[in-house]
Amino acid sequence: MVRRKNAFCYLMVAPMLALVLVLGVYPMLQTLGMSVVQYDLMRIAREGTPFVGLENFRQIAAEPRFWIAFRNTLVFVAIVVGCVVALGLFVAQVLNMDFRGRGILRSLILVPWVTPPVVSSAIWIWMYMADRSPINQVLMSLGLLDAPIRFLTDASKVWGPFSVPMGAVSSVRIWNGLPFVTVMLLAGLQSIPHEVYEAAEIDGASGIARFRYITLPMLGPVLSVLVTLLAIGGIGHFEMNYIMTLGGPNDLTNVLSVLAYQSAFTFYRFDLGAAISAIILLSTGTVAAFYIRAQLRGTGAG
């Protein structure tokens, strides 16, 4: 009986497993393989793809642009995850309240989610154009600005790893990712029994105390899943940084995935691109490992 049940389960999982193996694991292994050979399209016809060990990793580690991209990736993830979770918590709390028009608002909040990142990028490039940005026009007509903000091109105002372009690109990612976070948190909020809040209210707990001691702990599982997914997505994030700035100006918005793409498809160095991708894989794998370990501990399985 148990064997039959297992067989049924394996059968059900098999199609998805096959897809993951073919479209996920196989390319991943191919890429890892490519990271330890010389795979330079300019030389491949003459020299082939000789094994070079860790030479590609040594080369990228010696390249300042890699470290800039590495730092930018961490900053980008921190900004996006921090802001989107904070905003998501706020918006979810609002949408969880009982008020007229709540349904319409819940639908509207999903709009950025259904806008593909490529389209979002195109829209925001226009919104951020220094000379024609409607944001600049509004701020200047209100007398709040004397000169337009060069959202995507200002390389002069840099504060450590933070810059205007990094803020501009991150804000678009936050805008695009907010609905997903809000929906997840809203579902989490709705699963918290009202009785718990009522009991706390009777005990005289303030709103902040209720949020801190009831909402946050009870949203813990949802939040940990969210943060993990957002961090993994953020480390490998590509579209917006590539489309909006190509990683510029001055590499201020360059992240690892953009650098990997540029190395491979712009400069024909698939070996270096693969090495950078391997580092992305290692980073996301580390985050996932921590998450799985925490989950196993939580369920008492580990």
């Binding site: 300019m42 642009r65 390389a155 540029q262 400069f267």
Partner: peptide, 26 residues
């Protein structure tokens, strides 16, 4: 030169682009 396309590509990291950018903006 076969390498011309990656020398002249208009992206950061390409030699000509970096030279012009560094002079103009840095």
């Amino acid at each position: 030169s076969p390498a011309w396309s990656r020398i002249i590509v208009h992206q950061p990291g390409a030699p000509i682009y970096d030279m012009v950018y560094e002079v103009m903006n840095n």
